[in-house]
Each structure stands twice: as C-alpha cells, then as structure tokens.
Design a protein around this nucleic acid. Structure first.
Lengths: 227, 227
DNA sequence: CGACGCATTGACAGGGCTCAATTTAAGTGG
DNA sequence: CCACTTAAATTGAGCCCTGTCAATGCGTCG
C-alpha cells in the first residue's frame, strides 16, 4: 500500500540490485502453498526466512486452543532472525497465507552475509524495533482498551498493512476469518462476529466468509479514537 | 543474577575492554537520581542510553491514568535505540529506579560507532529480539491467562531479572509498589493487593511497603504453571 | 503529631467469555 | 447440477472474573 513504509522494513533496502541478487542467490528459494506450516514439522532446518511474495502468519499458542496472532509478515520482511543469532528454535508458529514464496538462509550463511554487509544489520534492527513498537502498542491496548475499540484498531492496522483501495472502500486482500481476527485482537470469535454484524448494520464494513471490506474507514477511525 | 543471560544482552559483549572504554568515552555519562524522567521533559536531546548502574523503568501511557509497564532496563542494556535509527521520538516514558548511571550518545555518534564496530549491531539485534520474545510471551499471557497466574509470572520474571538470594528466600532488591506490579502485569493495584495478601497467608511471599520477598519460589512456579 | 501516600478490604456491577443451538456458505463427488 | 458434508458465522442466554468505587488502616516523613 505505502511504498515508503515498505522500504523502511525491507531487508534489502539500501543495497544495489546486484548485491541483493547475490544475497538472495545464496539462500534457498521455495514456493509454498497456502497453510504450509513453517518453523516446526516439515521444516527441514532452522532457517531465517525472507518473504518475497505472499504472507506469513506468526502466532503463539498457549494451552490447547488459546492462540494469539503476533503478526503478519509481508514481502520484504524477515522472520525467525532469532534462529540465526541465538542458534535455537523460534518459539512461534508460522503458517503461510495464500501462495507464498520465501528465501531461507541457514545460520552460517546468514552470519557470513551480515558480516560482509553491515547495512543488513541496520535494516534488521530497524525492522525489529518497528515490530517491538507495534507490539508495545498492542500490549497497551489489550490492557487499556475495550474489545470493540481493539477490534477496530486491529482492522485498521491490517488494512494499512494489506489493504487495497477500491473507490471509497478498502478491501483486505487476503482471507481472514473471524477466529483469526479474534486471535489478532485478543478476544473471541463470538465477540468479533457480534461486533462486525453491528458495524455491517451501520454500513461501516461489509463481510463475506473470511473476506472483509471496510466501507467507511473514516467512521472506523473515529470510533477507534474516541468511541 | 545470571551472568550468561547478562552478557547475552550486553551492548558491549564481545568487545575488548579497550574498545568498550573508547565507545563509552565518546558518549556522555550522567548520574541520575531516583525518579528522574528521561526521554521527555528535562531531557536535553534525543539520545540512546546505555544503563551502567541502576535501572530504567519503561512504560507507556494511555488516556489519563491507564499505564502499562513495558520493561525494566538493567545494566548493560540499551534504551531508545529507535531514536538513533529513525531519528524520531521514542514513544515510551522512562523513569529511573534508584540511583542510576547512564551513558548517552546522540544519533550521529551512535551511527558512527555502529559503522566502525559491526559487533554492536549484532548485539543490538540480539537484545531487541530478546525483548520482542519477552513481550510476545507477555502478550499471550495477558490474553490467555487469569490475573493471579499473571501476577505470579510477573513476580517470577522480575525475580529472575533483579532478585537477590538470601537463604531460601529471594529478595527483589528495588522498591516496587502494588501499582507498579499491577502496571507490569496488566491489572489493577486492588487485585494485586488482594492476591499478595492471599499468598502471604499461604507463606509464599512476604511484603512490606513497596518491598517484596519471595519466600517460596517453588510454590509460585508451580502455581504459575498449573494452577 | 498531623498529613500524605501506599496498602487493605468489602460490596457491587458489568463487560465479555463460555456454551449451545442454528443458519449460512463453500466444497465434493456422483 | 444437486445432495451431502464440513467449516465458518450468527445469535441468544447466563454467569464469572475482575475492575470500580468507597472507606479504612498503617507506615513514613516533615
């Protein structure tokens, strides 16, 4: 959506095309189907992944059932840097959303590349600081804000990250279920469902099964900020 | 407490003493009194701080009153890296706990140092990944766990970070009020007070005004893990 | 000693989670 | 193209956890 924000978190930002190509060549590119699970079962090795196309859904599970959705990782962003730096498992689950292409590097290669190209380290810090800030805000909201407001903010956040404008409306262009929105917001699918129903009556959103269209972004923003 | 964990997050880890001294010399060392507020009012400039002694309390405020405590920053850790990398304000509040000594670098100096010494970037990434993971866990807990368990986990977390052993007991060796523990846990001081009172009857903790002693760490761990 | 801030405790209400029952929509195979 | 299956979404009812408010107690410091 926003090209500037994009490049800000882009792993390869600030490099020449040649350097970037070389770095990507040294990793293993893989095309993944929707709902492929990474990091755990079926994943060959501990690698750090760069998303080229599609989207990774990072989550964290508690005791059977309870789950939170940490973040969606879009093109240009890295996942599982921790495996490289600490050499241990990354304690989150990852699943692809839609057709996804990633590049993976193993620990040794990644450390080599970082040593050769300091700019990458800087980019990684920026990106992890951004994520930290994002999570800090959501942490605060989870404690301080009522569910409906939080749902609004979640929608807006996802919209900013992966929205596609169509006239006055904004379409979230990947499938997201009530359950997932609930996990992202920190609530239950029931509450999400009720809330979206209410908003649909007000004309703020339209939704089909796992598809959400924000019909009146302005109203949502107002609601999320004052209520 | 744990020297290994310490070095892991140490900004200067992996450098020779000489290099470290030189880097610190290029910043501005300052001694701060308890409850000095950083980052905002009274803070001369946007700087990145390294804590040498004492402790910084990072928080984030919502609308009047509501506040969450993001993290305590101990010796060897950095705060406000974002100001260096993005050149903008760091959206959290910081306050010193007890007598504290910090070194501050401005944006330009910091970038120079990083360029000269890539190891620092690596350390910064490690540290921010650790924090990210910590916050992810707390985010999950805030959503999935009941208050009492969360309070237990908060206490244990703080204990690990700043506990001092004394026989079987562990003393948290800086003053922490009910309100602060509540902000850290994501609850209210009333609930914290009730819970601590109950635990005191069970002999799990002892507490005086703003001082907490964990009398039976084992029981607390068991409780936090099962219930 | 008085005053202020921190802590305790009780009573109460309500937001939102839980559980259960339907309805709707999307696949699937004949 | 239609029955059939399965997953997602809706909606209602009830209740419990925990936040809110108010009153009181207690330790510390000027």
């Amino acid at each position: 959506m926003d090209k500037a924000g994009y490049q800000l978190t882009d792993f390869l930002h600030g490099l020449s095309g040649k350097q970037g190509d070389e770095i990507i060549r040294r990793g293993t590119t893989r095309d993944l189907k929707a709902q492929t699970v990474l990091f755990h079962e079926g994943d060959p090795a501990r690698q750090t992944y760069l998303v080229l196309k599609g989207r990774l859904k990072l989550g964290k599970v508690h005791e059977l059932g309870k789950e939170v959705l940490i973040r969606y990782i879009g093109p240009g962003e890295l996942a599982a840097m921790i495996t490289v730096l600490e050499g241990r498992d990354y304690p989150v689950t990852a699943e692809t959303v839609g057709e996804t292409r990633v590049v993976g590097w193993d620990r040794r290669t990644m450390l080599q590349i970082m040593a050769e190209c300091p700019q990458l380290s800087i980019n990684m810090i920026r990106n992890s600081m951004d994520r930290l800030e994002d999570l800090q805000s959501r942490y605060l909201e989870l404690h301080a804000e009522q569910v409906e407001k939080r749902i609004a903010r979640s929608l807006l956040r996802i919209m900013k990250q992966s929205g596609r404008r169509s006239g006055d409306e904004i379409i979230i262009d990947f499938p997201i279920s009530r359950q997932e929105l609930a996990d992202y917001t920190g609530t239950t699918l029931y509450t999400v469902s009720r809330t979206l129903s209410a908003w649909e009556k007000k004309g703020w959103v339209k939704s089909k099964r796992a598809r959400i269209i924000i019909a009146d972004p302005h109203a949502l923003v107002l609601f999320s900020e004052k209520g």
